[in-house]
Amino acid sequence: MTFTSKLDPRTKLFLIACLSSSAVIMSHWTFLAVLFGISVLLLLLFGVNPWGMLKKCKLLLYMVLGIAILQSIFMPAGQAIITVGSLKLLSLGGLKMAGEFILRMLIIIASAGILSTSSSREIIQGLVQCKLPYEVALMASLGIRFLPVFAEEFRDTMIAIQLRGVDFKTLPFKQKIEVMGSLFQPVVAGAIIKSKALAMSIEMRGFRASPHRSSYLVLKCRIRDYVIMISCGILTALMMFCYFSI
């Protein structure tokens, strides 16, 4: 665990780039299943609990599942499993496609999980040392930073509503919509106010004060980083070769 957590963030970036691009390129479920197995293994190696991660992305998973179901219904291919009249409702091909989609999404979620074992500062530095402009790298990571702010804002609001003795779940539908509609503005405004303060404090601490930045944090790849990157590259190339030669 200590071994993997001390890896250079660039190694991790390289790893997940290989993983997620393979997942996007390959569209055969056996390959995807193998990739999925690898990504679960990697998660465990990096000390991330895959089950805990799944629980955290519950909403996203429901969405993925919903899309998969729709996809398998609207893209009938191959042998039919359930038919209504002349309409193929569920087909073997559609089911396969849905399965591949789910696997692919899970692999990408797992990649994000691997990346989250580095702090955002390290990842920015990793991107910068790959010659990406600092501003762009920072924007990318602020985008990630913004999501939890938003989620937090929403959670606080739900708590505050219940503390006023109102059970949101059992409200009649019309009132639910009414509350949701009126919440939208304050929740968004709250998140924007927080982000504005964040941006201001970043500038006040001298961000963009001079054209050249020097970093206190300098990343250095060690031998094990190179070993992992090279072996990962070879493995990816091998899998691609197998995939395209079938």
């Binding site: 606080d156 609001t157 708590i159 505050a160 509503i161 219940q162 503390l163 006023r164 003795g165 109102v166 059970d167 949101f168 009126s182 919440l183 503005q185 304050p186 929740v187 709250g190």
Partner: peptide
């Protein structure tokens, strides 16, 4: 007890009032 039941008996104000304001 679900939170809303507690809220019907107990009044709580957060240390940070921003966390508790959610209407227009």
């Amino acid at each position: 007890l679900p939170l809303f039941k507690i809220g019907q008996k107990l009044g709580y104000s957060f240390q940070n009032p921003v966390q508790q304001l959610f209407t227009v």
